[in-house]
Structure formats: C-alpha cells, structure tokens
Amino acid sequence: MNKAHDNGQTVDIHLPAPTAWPFVMGLGIALMLTALVTNMVLGVLGVMLLVVSAIGWFMQVLPHEAHETLTVSSAMVPISSTRTVLQHTSESSIHRRILPYEHFRFTTGLRGGLAGGLAMTVPAALYGILRYHSVWYAANLLAAGGFTDWAGASNQFLSQFHIDGLMAAIGIHIVVSALVGLLYGALLPMFPRYPILTAGFMAPLLFTGIMYSAIGVVSPILNERIDWFWFVASQLCFGLVCGYVVNLHARIRTSQFQALPFLIRAGIEANRGNRESSEDKSE
C-alpha cells in the first residue's frame, strides 16, 4: 500500500449526491403492496410515488450522474504499529522436518481404495455364503440402509438377488472405498515406519470403532444384523490390500523436499533429519 503523505495538498473528490428518490420509491412500492391488504387509496398513492421517484431517479443519473464535490486534504492517515519493534522468533527447523518430504498422488489413494474394496468383497461374500447360503446377502444388507422400504426385510428377502440392491450396494461400496483409500493415501506417508501395522491393522480397527458407535444412526438395519467378527475381518482385508497397493506406488516429493540442502536432494549425502532434530532439541 502507498505510504502516508503529509504534503498538505488538497484534492477534489466527487461523491454521489444525496437524494431522496430511493426512499420515495421504496415507500411507493411498500404502499402499493400495503394497499393489497388495506385500502386501494394507498395503492394509488404508492403508484404516484413510484412514478415520481422513477422520474426523479432518472434525472439524477441522466445524462450525467449528480455528484457533490468535496475538497479535502490529500494527507493519508498515518499508519503505525503499537508494536514498535518487530521481534523475529528464533526459528528452529524441527517443525519443518516432521512434515513428510514425499507423499502419494491422490490417484494412488483412489486405486488403493478400489483395490481394497474389491478385496473386501471376498470375506463379505464368504460370510453370506456360510451364514445364509447366499452370495448376495452382504450386498443387500449394505443397500438396505438406502431403501426405507427394506427396513423390515427378512433374511430370506436379503438373501435373494435384487438388481436395485446390487446397484445401490456397488455405488455405496465404491464411494466409501474410494474415500477411505484417499485417506490412506494422505495418512500413510505420515506413518512411514510400520506401514503394515498402520494400514493393515490400526486403521481398520479405528474405522471399526467409529462404525461401531455410528452404525445405528447411519443404517439401523445394518446395525441390527451386522456380524462384527466378519466386519472386522473384511476391514482388515481392505486395510492390508489398500495399504499394499498404496505403498506400491512411487511417491512424489513435497515442497519440504525442495527446502533440503542440495547435497541431500542430489543423493550425495544422506538425509539426517531426525537425528539433527534430536540434536537441536538438546541444544
């Protein structure tokens, strides 16, 4: 921004001239509407005010907009901070180093999610076959959350093939798998040490915990009939496959990587980030 001037010069500033016509027009329209519920005389008055104000308004802006001229000092308000001394906080680079140097493309998460979702159908189908002798049971149960008229459906009904149920289940399953896959893609680089533990066990168990508390709200029918053992099994299956697929993909470098010294970026010297961090802390 331009700095303050104190040259004491004056400038002419043109501002729109005050006018009562907007007020009169507003009153006119209000009276016209009021007349509909009171007396038509008010409506006649409203129309008159509207016409007069419209003419007056036009004459205000045509052929040239009416304005008033103010002669003012050109000096700007002086600007200063009550904090006269800017103190730079002594910076440690630790907080930078804990950000990942590399991460996955978001498409990696999508692929992982879809692969995990596909793998998850195996235990789900197995559950249906073993428990209800139907490969469609799990799909119908998933779809039932979206169909209000399936709320009281029998096990026999859910064991049958329903094209609308299958389509709904596929839709729900793809969307949820893709979203969870995206989450994997974003989270896994932050837990680089034990990817199998994180992706294959911790995340599915956490997700199961969330679902356990929320499933009654999200899908009451699923809540009534869910078998948590099989649910956990399918979650683990999803997590292991999704995590595996995600970790297969090459990572791309973040802007934190660009901030590393050239020797490290060029691979001439190893990245000693964590060790240096602990050294910094001890200083």
């Binding site: 729109p16 006018t19 016509w21 907007p22 007020f23 027009m25 507003g26 009153l27 329209i29 209000a30 308004w57 205000q60 802006v61």
Partner: peptide
C-alpha cells in the same frame, strides 16, 4: 449507491 439506499428502505 442509490440502489443501495433503495434496498435499505425496502
């Protein structure tokens, strides 16, 4: 500016 005043009065 005039539309602005009109809006308020409405």
């Amino acid at each position: 500016p005039r539309l602005n005043a009109f809006s308020f009065w409405c």
